[in-house]
Amino acid sequence: MGSYLIRRLLIGIPVLIGVTLINFLIINLAPGSPADLYLTPTSTSADVVRVEAELGLDQPIFVQYFHWLVRLFHGDLGVSFQNRAPVTELLAERLGPTLLLMGTSLVVAYLIAVPIGILAARKKNSPTDYTVVGAAFLGISVPHFFLGLVLIYVFALELGWLPTGNMITLGRGGGFADRVNHLILPVAVLATATAANMTRYVRSSMIDAFGQDYIRTAKAKGLGLSTITNKHALRNALIPVVTVIGIDLSALIGGAIVTEQIFQWPGIGLLTIQSIGARDYSVLMGINLIAAVAVFGANLLTDIAYAVVDPRVAYA
């Protein structure tokens, strides 16, 4: 186990380097150069050369990559082209709303998926099960933006119960109830796909678990179905759920981008869209790098969690 952990972490090092390298290469692929920030339409070509030399842009690409890495380690992600603020500052400002949105969605998805998945597994091949499976399919198939539009149409425009977007009501908002009101629709959109996916995992792994010997033994010992569900099967069934969270972080981030755009939720996703509109690649690469490191970390944790729960993994 210990050596598996160390090996898994060591494997992560080249991967992390690869992530930064690709990120850096994409920046270089992007049109525009960091030098543009310091130049005006009246700058001469001599100015361009001077600024590029100052910024180290005349050096070989690997040297540039190395300097970029060093700056990265000092927490310097560059400067936004659009509003000249350090990228780290922009990110820090937007991170809170996104974490609130994604975190709430995950919790909601989890609270829906686990009981429903278990219910469907216990009533396998019953109308209840078919309904759950059908709904889960619908959930993974509906695009975030369409679901978002429908929800806004129904609950905000037609019924007028909830706001169409934003995090607080401008001007007079900001109270707890107001914030919750604004959170409901975006969370509903973001949680749907995750919950649907998770339900499918919980259901199928519970069905597997029910079929396993020790559960049959427990049944033979006269333990009631709910005791069995709670004690034995649940623990095992949660392994794939951990995996879903790991795998789905990537999908969740994708979903958050679209959801934040639809609801004008002032988080990282909206910043992404705005930066794309403004072709602000230094911000985009900062976001991308942070997100990639997060996904990388989630994958790592998933692997380790797997190995902890199922020691056979460590020896595979």
């Binding site: 494997i11 992560g12 080249p14 991967v15 690869g18 992530v19 690709i22 994409i26 692929l29 992007a30 049109p31 972080l249 990537s250 999908a251 981030i253 994708g254 979903g255 981008i257 679209v258 992404t272 794309i276 072709r279 690649y281 985009l284 690469m285 976001i287 991308n288 997100a291 990639a292 490191v293 997060a294 996904v295 990388f296 994958n299």
Partner: peptide, 22 residues
């Protein structure tokens, strides 16, 4: 396998969005 690890570390919708815009 390490290359696949690198690719799978990127949140794909975001990377696609950025690459398509470039």
């Amino acid at each position: 396998m390490r290359i696949t690890d690198v690719f799978m570390s990127f949140p794909y919708f975001m990377v696609i969005l950025i690459l398509v815009s470039i």
